[in-house]
Amino acid sequence: MLPVSLLLALLLGLVPLPSLLQPLRPYWLALVLAYWVVETPDRVGLGFAFAAGLVADMLYGTLLGEQALRLVVMTFILQRFRARLRFFPMSQQALAIGGLLVNDRIISATLHLAVGEPVLPWAYWWAPLLGMLLWLPMFVLLDAVRLGRRRR
């Protein structure tokens, strides 16, 4: 299920959106990767996050290594606080994921400034809020699929 969910997350990042909705696009790859880091830390770690980020960089045509760095930082923080995060209620988990997604935007903006690329407009800072709101349904869906496959 892990490869399929990552592939779907990568494809959702490619879906064209109207220019009005473009700033609200959640970082699907980060959300899916966060789920797998929290639920199966023995299968998904820093190396996996780096590889997934490089694939995303090549697929989306972004600065090579940008998403890899962003996902590695997120994975490191999740691994560090995984034990605590698993026992949070879902509302607090969503807040923590929202904080990680804001941190991701800060890293992205810093990288863009460092290499002289234009920084995304302020409207793009709404995407972490949407990602935070999507955490619960996405977590429940991936958990149901993962646990459903195990019971068979």
Rank of each mutant, 00 (worst) to 15 (best):
D57V: 12
R80T: 15
R43W: 08
H112C: 08
V4D: 05
L12I: 09
A9Q: 03
G148P: 06
L10E: 09
R70C: 10
L17C: 08
L129S: 09
A30W: 03
G45N: 00
L59Q: 09
L54V: 15
M1G: 10
V140D: 08
W126C: 12
A127M: 06
L78R: 04
H112W: 12
G99A: 02
L64G: 08
L141N: 11
V15A: 10
L113V: 01
A30T: 12
D57S: 06
P16Q: 07
L69P: 00
V140N: 08
A30S: 15
L141D: 09
W135R: 00
V4R: 12
A68H: 04
L31I: 09
A96I: 03
G13D: 08
A9M: 05
R149S: 15
R150S: 15
D57P: 03
Y60L: 15
V140I: 14
F50C: 06
L29W: 03
L147F: 14
S91F: 11
L46T: 06
P118T: 12
L6E: 06
A96F: 07
V44D: 02
A34K: 01
I107C: 02
Y27E: 07
E39M: 11
R152W: 14
A83Y: 09
R25P: 01
G53Y: 04
A52C: 13
R152I: 15
L6V: 11
L64F: 11
L101G: 01
L12R: 09
T62V: 07
L33F: 08
R149A: 14
V119N: 01
S5K: 01
D104S: 14
G65F: 06
R43L: 15
L111M: 11
F76I: 07
E117G: 01
R70F: 03
P128I: 05
M90S: 12
L129A: 13
L63V: 12
E39Y: 13
W125M: 06
P89L: 10
G116Y: 08
M74R: 01
W126L: 15
G99T: 04
I107F: 00
V140H: 10
T40Y: 13
A144F: 14
L7G: 12
I97Y: 02
T62A: 14
W36H: 11
S91P: 08
Q92C: 10
M58Y: 13
L111T: 10
L130I: 11
G61L: 07
L129V: 13
